[in-house]
Computed example of a mutant assay.
Amino acid sequence: MVVVGATSGIGLAAAIAFAGRAGKLVLASRSAEALDAAEAACRRAGAETVDTVAVDITDPDGAGRVVALTLARPGRIDVVVHTAAVMGYGGVEEMPADVFTTVVDTAVHGTVHLARAVLPVMRGQHAGTFIGVNSLLGSVTVPRMGAYATSKWGQRAVLRTLQQETRDEPGVAVCIVSPGSINTPIYYQAANYTGRAVRPPWPVLAPERVATVITQLADRPRRHVSVPVGPGNPLIIAGFRLLPRVYDRLVGPLFQLAALTRGRWPPTPGTVHRPAPARERVHGHWPDRADESRPTAE
Results as ranks from 00 to 15, higher is better:
residue 4 V to D: 11
residue 69 L to A: 03
residue 56 D to H: 13
residue 270 G to I: 01
residue 15 A to R: 01
residue 126 H to G: 06
residue 245 R to P: 03
residue 228 P to L: 02
residue 108 V to G: 03
residue 92 V to T: 04
residue 115 A to D: 02
residue 283 H to F: 13
residue 35 L to I: 06
residue 142 V to E: 00
residue 159 L to V: 08
residue 192 N to H: 05
residue 285 H to W: 15
residue 146 G to H: 06
residue 242 L to F: 09
residue 160 R to D: 15
residue 59 D to S: 11
residue 32 A to T: 12
residue 159 L to G: 00
residue 162 L to R: 08
residue 201 P to F: 10
residue 239 G to N: 10
residue 27 L to A: 09
residue 194 T to C: 11
residue 57 I to M: 02
residue 179 P to K: 01
residue 137 L to K: 03
residue 113 H to L: 02
residue 25 L to D: 04
residue 6 A to H: 04
residue 166 T to H: 14
residue 156 R to M: 10
residue 277 P to F: 09
residue 272 V to W: 05
residue 128 G to A: 05
residue 153 W to I: 01
residue 173 A to R: 05
residue 189 Q to C: 08
residue 45 A to V: 00
residue 140 V to I: 14
residue 272 V to D: 00
residue 66 V to S: 12
residue 128 G to C: 06
residue 109 H to I: 09
residue 80 V to M: 13
residue 243 L to I: 14
residue 164 Q to F: 11
residue 75 G to F: 10
residue 168 D to G: 14
residue 176 I to W: 06
residue 231 P to D: 10
residue 1 M to V: 10
residue 125 Q to M: 09
residue 137 L to D: 03
residue 199 R to K: 15
residue 214 I to A: 00
residue 270 G to H: 09
residue 228 P to A: 02
residue 88 G to V: 03
residue 249 R to I: 00
residue 129 T to I: 07
residue 244 P to L: 05
residue 55 V to G: 07
residue 217 L to K: 05
residue 203 P to I: 12
residue 235 L to Q: 00
residue 234 P to Y: 10
residue 197 A to I: 01
residue 171 G to L: 06
residue 260 L to R: 12
residue 275 P to V: 00
residue 74 P to I: 04
residue 219 D to S: 11
residue 151 S to W: 12
residue 282 V to L: 07
residue 30 R to D: 09
residue 263 G to M: 04
residue 43 R to Q: 13
residue 84 A to Q: 02
residue 14 A to E: 14
residue 289 R to Y: 07
residue 102 T to K: 15
residue 101 T to D: 13
residue 121 V to Y: 06
residue 180 G to K: 07
residue 138 G to K: 07
residue 209 R to A: 13
residue 149 A to W: 01
residue 142 V to A: 03
residue 150 T to I: 04
residue 44 R to E: 14
